[in-house]
Amino acid sequence: MREHPGTERDGHDANGLIVFLNGTSSSGKSSIARELLTLLDEPYFHLPVDAFHAMRSRPQLTPAEVDDTLKRTWRGFHRAVAGMAAAGNNVVVDHVLSEPWRLEDCLALFPADQVVLVGVHCPVDELERRERARGDRPAGLAASQVPRVHAHGTYDVECDTGTATPLDCARRIAHFLPERPVPTAFQRLRRQHGI
Rank of each mutant, 00 (worst) to 15 (best):
V66T: 15
A80H: 11
L37R: 11
N15Q: 05
H46M: 00
G6K: 08
I32G: 09
N15G: 02
V91Q: 06
L40A: 03
A86K: 06
R9T: 10
R75H: 14
F20C: 09
D94Y: 05
M55K: 10
D68W: 08
H53C: 01
H46G: 01
S57A: 15
A82R: 13
H78I: 11
D50S: 06
W74P: 00
L17I: 07
V19T: 00
A87I: 03
D94L: 05
E35G: 04
A86D: 05
L40W: 02
R58K: 15
F45Q: 07
H46L: 05
F52H: 11
G6E: 02
A54V: 07
E35N: 03
L37Q: 12
E35M: 04
H53I: 08
E8H: 12
G28P: 08
G23V: 05
Y44C: 07
A85I: 04
V91T: 12
K29N: 02
A14M: 03
F52W: 15
T38H: 13
Q60P: 00
E42A: 15
R58I: 11
A54N: 14
M1V: 03
E8Q: 12
T69Q: 11
V93I: 12
S57K: 14
L40T: 02
E35D: 07
T73W: 08
A85V: 03
A85P: 01
D41W: 02
G23R: 02
E8F: 12
S57N: 12
S57Y: 11
Y44V: 03
A82H: 09
T24G: 12
G11I: 15
M55W: 11
D10N: 06
L36M: 10
P5Q: 12
S26M: 10
A82M: 09
R9K: 10
H46F: 06
R34A: 10
M1K: 03
T7E: 10
L40K: 01
S25G: 10
R2M: 09
D13E: 14
S27Q: 08
A14P: 00
T73L: 09
G76N: 13
R75F: 13
A85C: 05
G11C: 14
V92G: 03
V91D: 06
R34S: 09
A33H: 05
R79N: 08
